[in-house]
Simulated scan of single mutants.
Amino acid sequence: MILCMTDSLLAPADIEALWLTLKLASVVTVLLLMISTPLALWLSHDNTSQTRDRSKVKGIVQAVIALPLVLPPTVLGFYLLIAFSPNSLVGQFSHAIGLGSLAFSFSGLVIASMIYSLPFVVQPLVNAFNAIGPRHAEAAATLGAGRWDTFRYITLPLARPGFITAGVLGFAHTVGEFGVVLMIGGNIAGETRVASVQIYDHVEALAYPQAHTLSAILLLFSFAVLLWVYARRPGNAEAKAWL
């Protein structure tokens, strides 16, 4: 019965918006995991062996990464929109390599979403690498293992829970974007109109049943993600029992 109600309330445009949202979140999550891994490794290194100048640089990098946590999405979207304009260096470079205009395009959404969701991927990885500590790497080095072998066979398996958490949080955060997406992508059907923008359109048109359906889907998805993340924390036996 619930499935029939959902089918009747979800228009083809709603399904298209959901599919585009999943596509955007998947691409962003994969790219963020690739970029965030070396960045998190560098940020997780012990500061006792670093110079004061390098520690200051690390503090600046951490502050820049964390900016999306406190910055209004419209502010971030506004400056990215300026950066993506055809007359900017980024805009000229994107045209030179054949990407065309990044503003109001799916490629622009990917870049903006990566910046917006970066702290949700980097921080779990930093926590995972810090939890491992240097002891395993030092033991592997004494046995003649190189850096790549140590990372591949020791660090990566031990940090697997952190990678899973980072991927889930990055994916979920991208799914829930609105302000940055609307500023950078606008509202182009099949190109930049994701689920959050589609809900906004339904509300503007007073199509509350359709807005309720899409909102309920995102609400249930968000709750499931948070339940999964909290259930993976040590000592949460009650939450694990639900999964």
Results as ranks from 00 to 15, higher is better:
I2F: 08
G133W: 11
R193M: 03
P68M: 06
V225E: 05
V122G: 01
T142A: 12
Y208M: 12
H173N: 11
G190C: 04
T6Q: 13
V229W: 02
F104W: 09
I188C: 07
L71W: 02
L20H: 05
G186W: 00
V168T: 09
A141L: 07
T74L: 14
V75W: 02
P12K: 04
V181Q: 07
R160K: 15
L219F: 14
P124C: 06
E177Q: 11
V110K: 04
L32D: 04
I184R: 03
G167A: 08
T192W: 02
Q62K: 13
L214S: 04
A17V: 08
W42G: 06
G170K: 09
N127E: 15
A141D: 10
V64K: 01
E138T: 11
T213W: 03
D201L: 09
L99R: 01
R147A: 14
E238T: 15
I115P: 00
A131E: 15
A112W: 06
D201V: 06
L80P: 06
N130M: 15
T48E: 12
V28T: 04
E238C: 10
F223D: 00
I154W: 03
A112I: 07
E238N: 11
F104Q: 10
S49C: 02
A40N: 10
A11T: 15
V168G: 07
G170F: 02
A103C: 00
S222I: 04
L41E: 01
L32R: 00
L80R: 05
W42N: 05
S44A: 15
Q92I: 02
A17G: 00
F129I: 03
L41G: 04
K56S: 12
D149H: 14
L227V: 07
A83N: 10
I217E: 03
D149F: 09
T29I: 05
A128K: 00
I132R: 07
T155S: 14
K23A: 05
L218R: 12
A131K: 15
A103W: 07
W19Q: 12
W19A: 10
K23R: 09
F129M: 13
V203K: 04
A141F: 11
Y153R: 14
I65E: 02
L109P: 05
R233Y: 13
A216L: 15
E204F: 10
R52H: 13
A172C: 07
L33P: 01
N87I: 12
T48L: 12
L220G: 09
E191F: 00
N130I: 14
V181D: 03
G179N: 07
T174L: 03
V197G: 06
L39H: 02
L71H: 04
T192V: 10
